[in-house]
């Protein structure tokens, strides 16, 4: 099957503006897992957290190293999966704390 992302300048990671060529350079330099590529290029570290590029990078690794997709290591998916504002989270903590205080619970260490 023809690879859909065969153009050098195709953007693989939209959040961090990384081209397919940039990712391929990285693979050719010897980086061989999604985690490693993420750490040197920031691919998958933007607002969408790799929802688009993870699979595309996995495809590149799979075809370069001739290994099945399932074997290309998937990085851990970390919460929160949808961006939440710090203010909302801060208020949630305070609410939880005042609830806990009423129950005689102990607060944080801060």
């Amino acid at each position: 099957m023809e690879n859909r992302t065969d153009d050098k300048n195709t953007i693989l990671c939209r959040c961090e503006d990384l081209t397919r060529e940039a990712i391929l350079d990285c693979i050719r330099a010897g980086f061989c897992t999604i985690d490693e590529i993420k750490r040197v290029t920031r691919a998958g570290m933007g607002p969408c957290q790799g929802r688009t590029c993870r699979l595309l990078i996995a495809q590149e690794l799979s075809s370069y190293y001739h290994i099945p997709m399932e074997e290309v290591l998937m990085p851990t998916f970390r919460p929160p999966t949808r961006p939440v504002s710090m203010g909302v989270l801060a208020d949630a903590w305070k609410e939880g704390q005042s609830g806990a205080a009423e129950n005689g619970g102990k607060g944080g260490t801060a």
């Binding site: 933007g46 919460p79 710090m86 203010g87 989270l89 801060a90 939880g96 704390q97």
Partner: peptide
């Protein structure tokens, strides 16, 4: 990663630097 850390961290930080309130958290590790 824990939700407890996520919330407590935000509470401590927003107290010190209220400007952070409007920022979205994208990843935790």
């Amino acid at each position: 990663s824990t939700w407890q850390f996520l919330e407590q961290n935000c509470a401590v930080m927003c107290e010190a630097l209220p400007v952070l309130r409007k920022l979205n958290v994208v990843r935790q590790w």
